[in-house]
Simulated scan of single mutants.
Amino acid sequence: MSSRRRSRFRPCIDLHGGVVKQIVGSSLSDADPESLKTNFVASENESPRAFALMYKEHNLRGGHVIKLGGGNDEAAREALEAWPGGLQIGGGITEENAKQWIDAGAEKVIVTSYLFPSRSFSLERLRALSSAVGKDRLVVDVSCRRRGASWIVAMNKWQDLTNMEVNQDTLDLLAEYCSEFLIHAADVEGLCQGIDEELVQRLGEWVDIPTTYAGGARALSDLDLVDHLSNGKVDLTFGSSLDIFGGTQVKFLDLVKHSART
């Protein structure tokens, strides 16, 4: 009897102000910086390099390093240098700088905002970026916010809604030019109050390329839930609930063991 693919744990390194942090996604605002809510701020001993080496030790490939705003390039390079070819990089990626990040050690580059000048999707930019680094090196971040019965792609640190809805047609179009999707459910990101189950289920129906969902994971059992809802087609990122980020709900080593099951 053939065995189907199982959903796996994908790690993350979120950078804000050059420091590893876990942030409530809906609190990010350029207009009101005081509204920022953080669940975790790394100490001096918890460098981007330290997290990258931890993921390398357990061979947790495909993790994403996300630069949330400016002042994060040095920290991002530190993580990539610790594990060349083991991590993906996102945040401010453009056609002009994408290859530089690949050369700096990124396995793949992750793009959102560049594809939406004036909040409108540009197929021309997607084609150009895919050509610049190669489809196999490109991840499209279709992180989104829920509006009614739909999910709308959000850009600029999830602050601004674009003109793209996350659905079968748009994901099929994007998949022609990239090798993976990354999808933060921005409304529940950092809240540790549960995943967006309907979105995960829909993604399982819609995607045919590797896809990682992030947002709201709060228990070890969430990995099995995502596996069930998506039929193993969607992987899961844990953030604020993890003990390595100061959380109390999920132990990193338990998750590593659970994710490695056959």
Rank of each mutant, 00 (worst) to 15 (best):
L129C: 08
L28V: 15
S179E: 13
V207W: 07
E197Q: 14
G148F: 02
E205S: 14
E189G: 01
A128V: 00
Q22H: 08
R137T: 07
V207F: 04
K157Y: 11
V256F: 03
E205L: 11
N72V: 03
L225D: 14
S118H: 12
R5I: 11
R4E: 12
G71D: 04
D172I: 05
L138H: 08
V20E: 00
R77N: 12
I195S: 01
K257S: 15
L203D: 06
Y55D: 03
V19F: 01
L220I: 09
D32L: 12
A50V: 08
P48R: 05
E46I: 06
A219S: 15
E78H: 05
E198L: 13
N167K: 09
Y213V: 05
R218C: 13
M155K: 15
S130N: 12
G246R: 05
Y114M: 00
D208F: 10
L223H: 10
I102N: 09
R261S: 13
T212L: 06
W206C: 09
I23Y: 02
L53M: 05
V142F: 10
L80M: 02
S26C: 09
I152K: 07
L236I: 02
S131W: 12
F40S: 01
R127A: 13
L223I: 04
E78A: 07
V133Y: 01
L28T: 08
E107N: 10
D196S: 01
A149P: 14
L236P: 10
A52Q: 01
A52C: 01
G204E: 01
A50Q: 13
R125A: 08
I23M: 13
E198H: 10
F51H: 09
Q249S: 15
N45R: 12
D172F: 13
K135M: 07
S2K: 12
V234W: 04
G71T: 06
I66L: 12
